[in-house]
Structure formats: C-alpha cells, structure tokens
Design a protein around this nucleic acid. Structure first.
Length: 489
RNA sequence: GGUCCUGUAGCCGAGUGGUUAGGCAGAGCUCUGCAAAAGCUCCUACAGCGGUUCGAAUCCGCUCGGGACCUCCA
C-alpha cells in the first residue's frame, strides 16, 4: 500500500503511520449500540464516522473485516440497582418481551443507518448469540488468576491484574487517584476492590434475560462481549478498534484488561475515538433530554428546529468537522450545511455535462494529491471537502468555458471526484425519483423551448411566468452560456 | 475534587512557529431583458495577561470561560 495513512492512536496519544498486522487485511471492531431505545443523532455521528473510516480503508485497497456488535443484553443501570436492566425496564414500559425490544430497536438502528447511507459491517454479532464464548473467556480469566467468584458472580480482579499489567493506560487513569476520587463509599458488596468490575453477574429470580453458567444463572458483564466477539472474529490481536469517546473509560479500558488477562497481551493496535455531538455546547444524551431523533431532524419536528434537513445534509454537516472534535449542533449550522451541500452536489452532478477541451487548464494530479493528503492525515474530512470545493469551482468554470480538461484528464478528474464524494464520504444523490426522470426531462425540454421562444420575442411576461411557476413547483431554471438547464430544488 | 480536552472572524468549522483553509451569511463587480445560477473581489480572526523566540494565534506559565470522563451512555 503506497498510501502513507496516519491515524491518531488514543493508546499512544499520537499520530502514527497505519501499518496493518497482515496487509492487505485489516480488522476493525466498532462498539455498536445497546438496543433498548431509538438511536439519536449523537449515536449516529459515531457510526457515520466509522463508516467513513471503513470506506476510506476499502478505497485504499485494504480488505477490511468490519465487525460491529449489537448489545442485546440489558446491563444493570447502576451498581446498586440489582435486577433492573435497560432492556428489561424498557420491556416493562412497552409491555413487550425483552427480545421484542431488542428486535424493534435493532430494526430501527439498521433502518436509520441505511437512510444515512452507512455500509453494513461484515459481521454484526450479538451479545446473546455469544454467551458461550463469553463464559469461556471468564473461565480463562479465572484460570489465569485475574478474577474471583463471589456468590454466583465473577469479578475482574483489578489489583491482581495491576501486579503484572497496567490498568488505565488507554484513558490515562491512575487507579490510586481514581480511588481517592470515587464518591461512592458504601455498598461495595461483593467486590474486593472498588475498581473491580463484573465479568458475570448473578441474575435475580425475576430477571428474564439469564443463562446457565458454571457459577449459576446469570448474564455477562457489559465489557465482556466486545472482548469475546472481537477475539472470535478478528483474532487475539487486530488493527483498529473504534467507538465513542465516552466509552474510553471504563468500557474500553476494561476490554483491554480482559483481553490481556485472557491472552497475555492487548487486543488492539490503533484505538480510534469519535468525539461527541453537542447541543449548545453540551453532550447530546438521552439523560440530559437534549437528544434528537433522526426522524425529528428530517421532519423538522423537534422544538429546537425550524425546518427539516435531509439525511445527506446531515452527513455533510458531520463530515465538515473532524471526527475527533466535538461538533455543535444548531439550526444555523445545519442551514449553512444545507446550502453548501446543495451547491456542492449541484456541481458534482453537472460534471456529467462537462465536455472535454483541447488542453487542460488545471492539474488534476494536484487536486488529487490534496485530497489524499487530507484523508491520510487522520481522516481529515473537512480538509478533503475544502479540496473538493476547489474541484467544484473548476467544474463551474468548465461549464462556463473558462476552464478545460483534455479527454483523458476529464475522465481522470471524474473518477477521482466520484471516488471521494460517493465512495469515501458516502454521499448519495437525492431527488432520484427513478423512472419518471426521463418523462420529466422530455416535458422540461418542451417547457424550456417555449420559454426560449417567448424570450426571443421579448415576451418577458410569459418567460418570467414560466420561470416563476416552475420555481413554485420546485424546479429551478438556470440560464448559462452553454444553454438552459433545470434542476429539482 | 481528580484526569483530560477545548476557547479561531457575524455563524459553522480546519490548520499552523514566519505564507489567503473551506462552507454559510454580508458588500461590490461581471454575466443577464430582469433574476437565479456561476465567476471575480472585499470583509483577514485566533479568550485575556505574561514569558521563550529574529518572529506566536501556533511553544511555556498564569487567569477567565466552555466541555468530557471519573456511574449507563456513541
């Protein structure tokens, strides 16, 4: 692979050259959702981010195995709220079986990602489908002396682990400091040490989602499924692990500890974290009550919005910021993205109509080089988009006959632009009401011809009426030097 | 309280020890019958105070503001 891709590795807190363990194969694991409710835009941002990462790796020619889990076991909401888990609670609320809840919100998750043009992962394992693997892993960790059993539950023994390994490397945490700053002082119940976490949890009699195990009926700890499933499908060591910044601690930290306790070494070469989507500067989350559902955004039905925005506008909005930065969500920002995206895609579409010239007036190689440089610098999509706007400018100039490319350069330019816009950034043409476009185009040619005749006769009333009526119907007429064009608004 | 991130023009957002990011909005011009679209030009900012440096918005320190994690969370 001749492309020197650099990624920011959270494990080392530095940008590193990306070198797969076994090029051209790349293993990538991304933490998926707990399917107990509709996903909101903040969740969506993370999945769009790693969709872009996946797309770019594929574009570079890597053979990527992309694994993203579905967490369909309800994990306890707090340490002391025994027996209450998110999925179980939601099931009660909706008067459904827990697995009906899981199915309902898994479907929603898939539908939404599909709407936003995210490519499905290669493997999408569920936690409930890998109970045996998880139990096996707990057994191995116990055998290796990094866990202990207590009344039907099994806990990870952080102190034992710390004698041989570091705990807290990824999140930059010092366990002693953590201890000093832990607010909860009582109720540490079965745990020997405050930082210990459950690998297997004993289920109370009323708990519905539970499985038999060597320690009795119970369910796996939250962190365990990712360790077990990533190992199963990507091996003991793989290339990329992604997820939201908020999962860094304790989830990813514990994942590393579990894998290390089990196999003797860490599981992941490059840890990538997507940053949070904020609303008025604050993290979007359900508990804060500031979350948006994708549907509310598209329909514009949320109180904070004064209009709806299309899926691709939202995707563009997200791609205009770097994945590792927080992104603030607001009406004005969305509006700006909408206009920018429209201008952007209008030009990309118009590229099809550009005709080759006798000589090239600009360098396709330079533009291409800028685009790759942006992406190779830790997936810098905002810089890529800036580069593509330079392409937009050149397209518009070519349409006006003020710039040109030879036949060979033009097809090179087209494939380069298309690769970045559609394959890498994952934009998709909207307004493609397939089937009637041909008929509509024929009708439009007729209308345009009538308007042309009216203008020829200086019958401005007629020509302006045509233009205005079409505009009211959502069709925009564009008079260019090359002729008259039209587009759906 | 601890750990860490962050503060960029009207708005959104990149980046960087010395050279115009980009988008949106605004102003002017070109084109046009008038518009729209498009092109060109302008608006040239880096929280504050010190320090390092030939030179800092970029490095260091302090102050102020915002945020994340430390509990489930993408």
């Amino acid at each position: 692979m001749e492309h020197p891709l650099n990624v920011y590795n959270n494990l080392t807190r530095s940008k590193e050259r990306f070198v797969p363990i076994q090029s051209p194969f790349v293993g990538m694991y991304v933490c998926g959702p707990t399917v107990y409710n509709y996903m909101h835009l903040g969740n969506l941002r993370t999945f769009i981010t790693f969709d872009m990462v996946y797309r770019y790796l594929v574009h570079l020619g890597y053979k990527v195995r992309y694994v993203r889990n579905i967490t369909d076991v309800g994990h306890i909401t707090t340490e002391f709220d025994e027996g209450v888990d998110r999925i179980g609670a939601q099931a009660k609320l909706e008067q459904l079986e827990p697995m009906e809840i899981v199915q309902k919100y898994t479907n929603n998750f898939h539908d939404v990602l599909n709407q936003f043009n995210c490519i499905p992962p290669s493997i999408e394992p569920t936690a409930t489908g890998h109970i045996i693997e998880q139990i096996e892993m707990v057994k191995q960790i116990l055998e290796n002396g990094f866990a202990y059993e207590a009344d039907g539950s099994v806990y990870f023994d952080v102190r034992a682990y710390m004698q041989k390994h570091k705990y807290g490397a990824l999140s930059g945490r010092n366990v002693d400091e953590l201890f000093e700053n832990t607010r909860e002082l009582d109720g540490q119940d079965e745990k020997r040490f405050f930082a210990d976490f459950a690998l297997w949890k004993k289920a109370s009699p009323e708990h519905i989602m539970k499985w038999p195990s060597p320690w009795g009926e119970g369910f796996p700890g939250w962190h365990l499924e990712c360790s077990a499933m990533s190992t199963k499908y990507l091996g003991e060591e793989f290339d990329i692990h992604g997820g939201g910044m908020d999962l860094k601690f304790p989830h990813h930290e514990s994942e590393i500890a579990q894998n290390t306790a089990c196999c003797g070494h860490g599981p992941v070469r490059y840890w990538l974290h997507g940053n949070m989507l904020t609303v008025n500067g604050e993290k979007m989350s359900k508990s804060k009550g500031n979350s948006f559902l994708p549907l509310e955004l598209i329909a514009g039905s949320h109180p904070l919005l004064d209009q709806g925005y299309s899926e691709m506008t939202v995707r563009f909005f997200m791609m205009q910021s770097h994945y590792a930065s927080t992104l603030d969500f607001s009406n004005d920002a969305l509006k700006a993205a909408e206009k920018g995206y429209k201008r952007f895609m209008t030009a990309i579409d118009a590229l099809e109509k550009v005709k080759a010239g006798t000589a090239s007036t600009f360098s396709v190689d330079d533009l291409r080089r800028d685009c790759y440089a942006a992406m190779n610098d830790d997936f810098n999509t905002p810089i890529l988009i800036a580069g593509l706007f330079e392409c937009v400018k050149q397209i518009n100039l070519m349409l006006e006959g003020k710039a040109a490319l030879t036949d060979a350069d033009l097809s090179d330019f087209k494939s380069m632009v298309h690769a970045f816009v559609f394959d890498v950034l994952g934009f998709r043409r909207e307004n493609e009401s397939a089937g009637n476009t041909k008929a509509l185009d024929a009708a439009m040619q007729l209308v345009i011809e009538m308007r042309r005749k009216a203008r020829e006769n200086k019958d401005w009333t007629t020509s302006d009426t045509i233009r205005d009526q079409l505009k009211a119907a959502g069709i925009v007429i564009k008079d260019t030097k090359e002729g008259v064009d039209w587009m759906l608004e």
